[in-house]
Design a protein around this nucleic acid. Structure first.
Lengths: 216, 216
DNA sequence: CTGCCAACATACCGACCAGTATGTATGTTA
DNA sequence: TAACATACATACTGGTCGGTATGTTGGCAG
């Protein structure tokens, strides 16, 4: 009788429901912060989106700030990792991989109008809250390190020009991506972002070592 | 008696005082919006900065939104014009002029931490308020047009490479400037901005037509 | 069956918000 | 000098904010 029906399922169900509530709060907060910015994001709006009430929120998070930090860590960081770090790990051709990542930047009207989650929050909160700033800086650093590493590897394999400074080029790439994102967000026009992607891709091609051209 | 002492001075004094109050409100609003963003900028804080009260504000501006629009038109637009349009008009060497403008980007810690007024407001308000978005888009367009025009002129004079598309290069330059501004703002580190300026300058040099090099 | 705790829901709080209604001092005009 | 408009100051409003204190419910151990 001691081993029979120890009811791990019921416990698991409860825990899973609790985790699902937390996840819904995170997703709702992410969407609302994306729309209105962190400071103007209303907890009531987030709660309505998540379909729960204040009690649930303050059970899972100790404050609005903690909720925001959790969005950075559990939503934004994995997103950037999936788009800019994992795709660059152990690839044959770094330039092709970078071009692919750039071309996979969302260009649907809604995405262009909303901009980049990472950049949005960094722009708004970096001067105002050290907790946000540091967490976002870690993401930017990981992004830049991933690009720089793949460029360095390309240099050792001879596919990337030796006179390119990987760290500088990585920073420049990120600046271009975020800069064009800003321009396209203001213009509210996917064409601006598409033109930006073309220009970035052209610049990336110029980093390829002579004799390693894929085209032309 | 009809022409004597028609008291234009008193009227002028009154008008000048009124105009000064309006100007102080604009400057205070600009600073507070720069610090906290438009949405989170408190009118009470702006009034305290300007040293006036609600009555003065709503005498000169019909709403917070109108005040914000006036900041864009009367503070931000002239600032961008003075830094990126006037310095590029009828210059001998467009590349040198562009390099000069880039090198004149403020890199003091306070400037780097605060970011670019134009980009700050554009990022925050473009998706939320069409009035802000359009006014800011006009500034971005004027900026890009000024850069593109000076590049075109450089092409006719032979100092800029013919294979450069002026409009594309202008957009890329602005994207780089704003992108690096974002990265430096998040890093809160003037070194990031200085490194960005060096990279942008290097890219600008690559636009110079062969045989027109200023430096080896 | 009972007590207990996790996982919420509900009701409420003071602070702050943009905006307004009204008061008032200082010229200007008739 | 009396009427009047300009250029504000003061006092107040309804609404929203993040946060808290308390109530409620369901599963689960003893």
């Amino acid at each position: 009788m001691l081993a029979a029906r120890n009811s791990p399922k019921h416990r698991a169900t409860r825990l899973r429901d609790s985790e699902r509530t937390r996840e819904r709060l995170l997703q709702a907060a992410s969407r609302e912060i994306y729309r209105s910015g962190y400071q103007s994001a209303s907890l009531d709006t987030i709660l309505a989106l998540a379909g729960v009430t204040k009690g649930a929120l303050y059970y899972h998070f100790e404050s609005k700030e903690a909720l925001g930090h959790a969005v950075v860590k559990e939503i934004i960081a994995p997103d950037v990792h999936g788009k800019w770090v994992r795709p660059l790990q152990s690839v044959k051709d770094p330039i092709d991989a970078l071009i692919g990542a750039v071309q996979r930047i969302p260009v649907r009207p809604a995405d262009v109008r909303g901009g980049c989650q990472l950049n949005n929050l960094a722009q708004e909160m970096s001067p105002l809250d050290a907790g946000f700033r540091k967490r976002l800086a870690i993401i930017f650093d990981a992004w830049r390190d991933a690009v720089a590493s793949t460029l360095r590897e390309g240099q050792t394999h001879g596919s990337v020009r030796r006179d390119v400074e990987p760290a500088d080029a990585a920073g420049l790439l990120i600046a271009m991506v975020e800069g064009y994102g800003s321009l396209a967000k203001n213009a509210q026009d996917p064409k601006v972002m598409k033109a930006g992607i073309r220009n970035i891709v052209g610049w990336l091609r110029s980093l390829r070592a002579p004799g390693n051209r894929r085209r032309g």
